[in-house]
């Protein structure tokens, strides 16, 4: 079992300092900010390395940061073998929100990524079935963006009550 700090050091040796930053809020869990381009390699390493063994992607969430004009993706990982936990975060600008998909590494990311696309509008490169999941395919906008305005009509039916 490793603490998040140790995991960060371990990762830094592998991927270099440029790609990763260790961050922490005033409260709660720390996270490792990963450059979008390397997230797939980092994920693969985290899953397969004998010291990491993160076999479970517990949760994947999309976020919108209106001030920085960025969208983010958070990966909460857990290793049932070594019983350690780490959070990864990726932030990309809102105009070109492309993040490599980790669907090939953890199958569970399939639906979570579709949901993040649906709700926040993150584009996952390499996702095999990149479609909306909860909302209809022809819905406009991504509701969990902070600047989201609900469309007036959907297929001629008003969306206001």
């Amino acid at each position: 079992m490793k603490t998040p700090e140790e995991i960060f050091e371990y990762l830094k040796n592998e991927f270099g300092e440029d790609a990763l930053t260790f961050e922490k809020g005033d409260i709660g869990d720390p996270w490792i900010l990963v450059k979008a381009a390397t997230i797939k390699n980092v994920s693969k390493f985290l899953r397969d390395d004998p010291g990491m063994r993160f076999n479970m992607l517990m949760c994947l969430s999309g976020l919108h940061y209106p001030k920085e004009e960025e969208v983010g993706v958070v990966y909460n990982l857990h290793s049932t073998e070594l019983h350690q936990t780490i959070n990864l975060k990726v932030r990309v600008p809102v105009d070109g929100p492309a993040v490599p998909s980790v669907e090939a590494i953890w199958k569970t990311a399939d639906w979570h990524e579709r949901e993040a696309y649906d709700m926040v509008g993150v584009i996952f490169d390499g996702h095999p079935n990149h479609k909306r999941i909860l909302l209809p395919d022809d819905w406009e906008g991504h509701p969990l963006r902070k600047d989201y305005v609900q469309q007036e009509f959907y297929r001629g039916v008003t969306t206001r009550s």
């Binding site: 922490k24 809020g25 005033d26 409260i27 709660g28 869990d29 996270w31 517990m58 958070v74 959070n87």
Partner: peptide, 9 residues
């Protein structure tokens, strides 16, 4: 709460 994030299961 203060600034920060948490994942609780």
């Amino acid at each position: 709460p203060k600034e920060g994030e948490i994942y609780v299961r």
